[in-house]
Amino acid sequence: MSVTSAAVVAIDREAIRELIYRICLLLDQNKFVEWLAHCTPDFRYTISAWSPEIRRDMIWLDHDLDGITNLMKMLPKHNSDQTPLTRHASVYTIDHHPERGEADVVTSVAIFATALDGGATELWALGRYHDTVSVADGVPRLRRRNVRLETRSLGIGKHWPL
């Protein structure tokens, strides 16, 4: 790799980290429209987990950009638990694939719930973001996110993306 291309990769890596963290902040604030603005038109979002009980992989949510946009648009019509979620994320690995114009990114995430009444915080879920980030046009955008949950006992569940 030339010095120039190495520098480009370094810039991409930093931009990718910033994208992941910025998205966390947007999701923490329920700014779903702004979150989706960081996604490519062919974005795909899934939440999945392995069940040791039935010894099968499970997909709990699976939507393209239109699907997830619609779910967020319909939220005001539903009764949803409003307990805020806060993400603590650490980008573990970034595997850059210049030939694809993409990077595969693995981020560890702990999601905390803070009660509206009294503000007690508890760990709500642990998992990892397995992301594919497009870097083709110089601006990193999320093309694929699989939220791989370790935690499967999620209480009453949630209407929001993680």
Binding site: I59, W60, H78, N79, I156, G157, K158, H159
Partner: peptide, 27 residues
């Protein structure tokens, strides 16, 4: 199978439209 899973989760998964509301009610 994928289609059944998508259908199921649209209303009944932990992130589905209906199950969360039902659980919110009994909580």
């Amino acid at each position: 199978r994928s289609q059944r899973i998508r259908d199921y989760n649209s209303i009944w998964g932990p992130f589905g439209r209906n199950l969360h509301e039902d659980l919110l009610g009994v909580m």
